[in-house]
Amino acid sequence: MATEAFDKLEHELRRGVVVLAALSQLRTARYGYELRQSLAAGGMAIEEGTLYPLLRRLESQGVLSSEWRTDEGSPRRYYVLSPDGHRLHERLIEAWRSLNKTMDHLLTHGAPDER
């Protein structure tokens, strides 16, 4: 039960940072499988069934732009941050750092009445 709850909650935590993690790797153009490999190599493994549709949704929201390329044989769709995506990415980084700092403080010092 505890393991099941942990898995579920950890999944929720990771799901919250999937977008930021993906955007962080898309300053340069990458295709889906390459992005997934890059994230996995950085310690952020994301299920393919989650990541690939996410790229499409971000593109439809104007965060990413994409194009088909056939540089290395088979055609692949490459994604990169759009100008709006760059601005959004910067704001998300700020929000993440602020949140991270807050959480770090809470986890280190506990609640006010525990100090």
Binding site: Y31, G32, Y33, Q37, E48, Y52, S74, P75, R76, R77
Partner: peptide
């Protein structure tokens, strides 16, 4: 989406 998904799945299998 069909072209992209097929290509990605093929990459996953081959990789």
């Amino acid at each position: 989406v069909a072209l992209e998904l097929k290509s990605l799945l093929a990459d996953e299998l081959a990789g």
